[in-house]
Amino acid sequence: MAYLLQQLANAVPLAALYAALAFGYSIGFGVTRRADITYGALFAFSGQMLLLFTDFGYSRLFLILPAALLLGAAVSLAYALGAGLLIGRGIMMPLARKSPNTVIVAALGMTIILGETARLAANSRDLWLPPLLNNAIVFWSDGSFQVTLTLIQLINVAAMSAIVLAGHLVLTRTPWGRIWRAVTDDALAAELCGTSAARVFLVAYCVSALVATVCGILSTAYYGTMDFGAGLLFGLKVLMIAAVGGYFDPLRSALGAAAVGLFQTLWDAYGPFVWRDLVIFSLLVFLLVVSRRERVIP
């Protein structure tokens, strides 16, 4: 029983990460209407920039670790958001209007560029952060076994949950949320009503990039590193897990992704690890096929 409780506790941080990533992805998907693995690339890129500039601040500028981390986080935000703005304005928006299917090809190109940029900047070195805020918080104990999470896990869960909650409130309770829904439903009709679909596209894409960036920074601070090939992996994974709850409703997408995080953790605990990714991706494909809804995407 205690072991199961520990695994359920372990599932919470992963479920929160998947939920936040899926929520941000759905906001961007609403305006692009095409699979965009650039989102995962921005997630990985932000983590890689955090590592690179934290190392620079600590090794070259001789900053103390907290100051080096703040420098890394600030530069990571600037670089990743700048990349998201450039990609959204200069590549995705023109392609989505003229030839939507090319968005998929362009996303693959952007993923390669971002990953290789980070790799070359780091000289192909695997950088690691020291363990951060890894104090164990005990939730339950039977004397011989304790159910715990670390402080940084709790901080990440709180931050990512806040992203989903705040984003949902903005989308459902504010004028911008209504405008976003209008553009995602019918951009031309929204234009005829006086809304700038281009501006909404750019803001939505940047918000999506912001969510990916914050999640990348928080995840890297917890796991300690970010692989150079993680952009493609997370791009494909987020693309799949976000579809479980449906791309067109960010909250449902987040809840579906959280369920995937729970399943993945339980499989790690009770199933053979070597089959994990095959089983999860196969299950996601199956769910997409049996729950597919026909919707015209212009």
Rank of each mutant, 00 (worst) to 15 (best):
L165W: 06
N135S: 06
V290Y: 14
L51K: 01
V138W: 04
F201P: 00
A259G: 14
V296M: 12
Y222M: 15
T172S: 13
R89W: 13
S124Y: 10
A189P: 02
G40N: 05
I179L: 15
L210P: 09
N134C: 09
A136G: 08
F62A: 12
L239A: 12
S291P: 15
N134D: 13
R178D: 08
F273R: 12
S59P: 06
L129N: 04
Q48F: 03
Y58C: 11
S26H: 01
S208G: 02
A22L: 00
L108I: 15
W176L: 06
V31K: 04
I217Y: 04
L71C: 03
D277H: 05
V31Y: 04
E191V: 06
G167N: 01
G28Q: 04
A67S: 06
A15K: 01
N135T: 11
G245L: 03
L132K: 11
G57D: 01
A41D: 04
D277T: 00
V75H: 06
L127Q: 08
S282R: 07
R181N: 14
L65F: 12
L95S: 07
T117A: 14
V75M: 11
Y3E: 01
G229W: 07
I280L: 05
L165T: 11
T220H: 01
A209K: 01
D142F: 15
P175A: 00
A197K: 03
A122V: 08
R97T: 08
A269P: 05
L236A: 14
L63T: 08
S196Q: 09
K98G: 13
A158F: 15
D268E: 08
F248N: 11
V203I: 14
G30M: 08
F234G: 06
L232T: 09
V164Q: 04
N156P: 08
L61F: 06
C215N: 02
E294G: 13
Y18K: 03
